[in-house]
Design a protein around this nucleic acid. Structure first.
Lengths: 152, 152
DNA sequence: TCAGTATACGACCAATTGTGTCGGGATTAC
DNA sequence: GTAATCCCGACACAATTGGTCGTATACTGA
C-alpha cells in the first residue's frame, strides 16, 4: 500500500534522535527505545542492520552504543529505507531474473519504473539533517507542498 | 516496503488494456484476465471496485463488461491506486484521530508527509494514457529519468 | 419467457509479510 | 569478573494480501 514499514520509521526516528544529540559519544539502543516507547529489542536489531550497512558506528561494552557513521547531512532517507527494508520497487514484478514470467505482457512496469526512480530521487534528497531540523511548526500550511516536474 | 499491491498492479494493467482497445464497447473481466493470466475472479473484484469509485462503467448481461468511465488521459494512476488500495500514507503513523499516541514524539512524520505529497503528485501526473502510450522500447536508457525538485 | 452471459457481493481460506520476543554469545569498561 | 552493551539466529504472533467459492442479480437475445 505504498507505505514505510514501522521498522523503517523506527530507523529514521533513531537516526534523527542521534542527529539531535551530537554531543554524546554514543547512545544505547535502550536509550533511544525508551525515549520513544519503541520495543527495545526490535530497535536494537534495526540499529544493528544500519550498522552493518555503514550508516552507524557501534561500540559494545559499558557506555557503548551507537553513533552516526557520517554527518547527518550526508545520510539520506533513501539509504535508511534501503538498509532496513531492502531495495524497493514500486511494481510487484521487479526487473532482473524471474520477473513477470507468467505475464510476459506486464507492460505497465516500464513507465512505473520511472515513477519508482522519481520517488527514490525524492528520498535521496532528504537527509537525516532535514528531519532533525524541521521542528518549527511554522510552515504556513500551504497546500502547494513540493513542486514536482516529472519528465516521462 | 513501499510497493504497490498486486491488486493495484492488476487494476492499472486492466485500465491500460481498456485504454488500448477503445473501439470495443466493453470488455469482460474474463477477457482481460485471460489476456494477462490474472485470476479472473480476483480481477473481477478489482474492476467492481473501480466501477464503484467511478473509474469504470459496467454493463451486465451478454456482451457486457467494463469500459473506461472517462478518457484515459483523464484517469490518473493516483486515482486507481487510491480506489484499490485506499488512501496511502508513507508514514505508518497517519494524521487524524489516533495517530502516534504512544509516541508523541514521532516528529519524523511531518517532513515525510511532504515526501508523501510529492509522491502523490507524481502519481497524479501519470495518466492511464501515459501507461498505454509507452510501448516503444526506444527510450535511450538515460539514467537521468525524471527531474524532480522538492521544496522542503 | 427462458437460457446464457455477465456483473455484484459477501464469506472464507491460504500465503506472505510485518512485528515483536527470546535466548545465547561476544565485547568492552570499570 | 561483572555489568553493560552490541550481535545474531530462531521463533511466535498478528496483520495484510492474494485468491477462491457460492450465490444473487442484471441484462441480452432468441
Amino acid at each position: 500500500m505504498l507505505k514505510l514499514t514501522k521498522k523503517a520509521d523506527y530507523g529514521l526516528i533513531a537516526l534523527k534522535y542521534l542527529a539531535e544529540h551530537p554531543e554524546t559519544p554514543a547512545l544505547s539502543a535502550k536509550d533511544i527505545a525508551d525515549a520513544y516507547g519503541i520495543p527495545a529489542q526490535l530497535l536494537a536489531k534495526i540499529l544493528q542492520l544500519m550498522t552493518k550497512k555503514g550508516l552507524l558506528r557501534s561500540h559494545a561494552g559499558m557506555n557503548g552504543g551507537y553513533a552516526l557513521a557520517r554527518e547527518a547531512r550526508e545520510i539520506s532517507a533513501y539509504e535508511v529505507i534501503l538498509a532496513i527494508d531492502g531495495p524497493f520497487f514500486i511494481t510487484s514484478c521487479t526487473k532482473g531474473a524471474k520477473s513477470c514470467e507468467l505475464t510476459p505482457s506486464c507492460t505497465i512496469k516500464e513507465p512505473l519504473a520511472r515513477v519508482n526512480d522519481t520517488i527514490a530521487g525524492v528520498l535521496k534528497s532528504i537527509s537525516i539533517q532535514d528531519l532533525a531540523e524541521h521542528e518549527q511548526p511554522g510552515m504556513p500550511a500551504n497546500g502547494a507542498a513540493g513542486l514536482v516536474s516529472l519528465r516521462l
